[in-house]
Design a protein around this nucleic acid. Structure first.
Lengths: 142, 142
DNA sequence: CTTGAACCTATAGTAACTATAGGTTCTATA
DNA sequence: TATAGAACCTATAGTTACTATAGGTTCAAG
């Protein structure tokens, strides 16, 4: 029994990914060039589905394309160990932690501005938010 | 007594912004076309500094260029009230809140994967992280 | 008056796709 | 089996918010 075959549209549906994105991933070398029909349509099989899932899930975790290329290299090449993958995951976790901290600072700044502007019925040149944007260092570091 | 004048380089330094970015903001209509010297160099004054500060700080709060155009419209045109600005700030706060929640989910997913992969000395095809990326819905919604 | 830093314009590159145009193939139905 | 139209193909341009480059001109200090 053969593997099941998928058109690019079916692959896209299975992985919640657009057809154009699959084209794009092929162009940049993340996805392999698959076999084609007589007429030139791409034909995919299960390993393609799994690989594309891997890519999309890694993207959803915030990995950049270049990082995903490295992750795939660990997988495609023999003689790699789990620790290399774990290290990248930990690195990514610290990047995400930073982003969360940035956004939380930003959120405080916005909330403070909103609280200042209690009534909302002042002319714009009296607005505390506008004032803050003009004159304050709105997003602090610490 | 005249206002002080600034070259584009001085303006950039005062606002922690690159010269190219000022060019860009002028091209897209965020910054006005300033007067020029005989030789064609741009000449700025204090209102330009304040406006650019406003733009940069709004960007630091995560506002998009199109939103900043609207904020500036409130300021440039008469007859706008603080409430319009406040509404945009609140809208932005909720966008930021969403992003924080997304990143926190993402962080949990990464941490769980990292914990699973305790030793780091397994071959890659036995790695729990790789396995998760291949087969799990890594970033849940709730 | 000369030198070199700073400025000028215009264009291309970045990340990670998305959208469009214009044409071909596949497949379901009459 | 003929055909309509959905899905596919390639190539190119657009998106966001800049950044970088090339190739030339102006300004300011010595």
């Amino acid at each position: 029994m053969n593997y099941e075959k998928y058109s690019i549209g079916q692959l896209a549906k299975k992985t919640a990914c657009k057809v154009e994105t699959v084209h794009y991933y092929e162009k940049i070398g993340l996805m392999p060039e698959p076999p084609r029909t007589e007429g030139g349509h791409r034909v995919y099989a299960l390993p393609h589905v799994k690989r594309l899932n891997f890519i999309r899930r890694s993207r959803a975790l915030g990995f950049r394309i270049e990082q995903i290329k490295e992750l795939l290299k660990f997988i495609d090449e023999p003689n790699h160990y789990c620790g290399e993958v774990k290290a990248m995951a930990m690195q990514q976790a610290s990047v995400v932690q930073e982003k969360i901290a940035d956004l939380q600072r930003l959120q405080s700044a916005l909330n403070e501005m909103i609280i200042q502007c209690s009534t909302g019925n002042k002319p714009v040149d009296d607005c505390p938010i506008v004032d803050a944007l003009y004159t304050e260092n709105v997003v602090g570091q610490g």
